[in-house]
């Protein structure tokens, strides 16, 4: 994913057991804060359809 140009920190993988409530909270907080810090994605976002109209024409 990083190879495609997606910033490190935007995608997280975690293994959390159903017994690990505190770990779950920690991970969610961490994910949201790192992603918020990165801000909205710039690439790999589809152009809104209204502006993409017939650009080839």
């Amino acid at each position: 994913m990083e190879y495609m140009g997606i910033e490190p920190g935007r995608i997280h993988f975690s293994w959390i057991s159903s017994a690990e409530a505190t770990k779950f909270v920690d991970v969610v907080n961490e994910v949201t804060s790192t992603v918020k810090a990165l801000g909205p994605r710039k690439s790999f976002v589809k152009t809104p359809l209204t502006t993409a109209k017939n650009k080839a024409a």
């Binding site: 990083e2 190879y3 495609m4 140009g5 997606i6 490190p8 710039k42 690439s43 790999f44």
Partner: peptide
């Protein structure tokens, strides 16, 4: 990351 995205574009 930005350069990568541009490279693949």
């Amino acid at each position: 990351p930005a350069e990568k995205a541009e490279f693949f574009d």
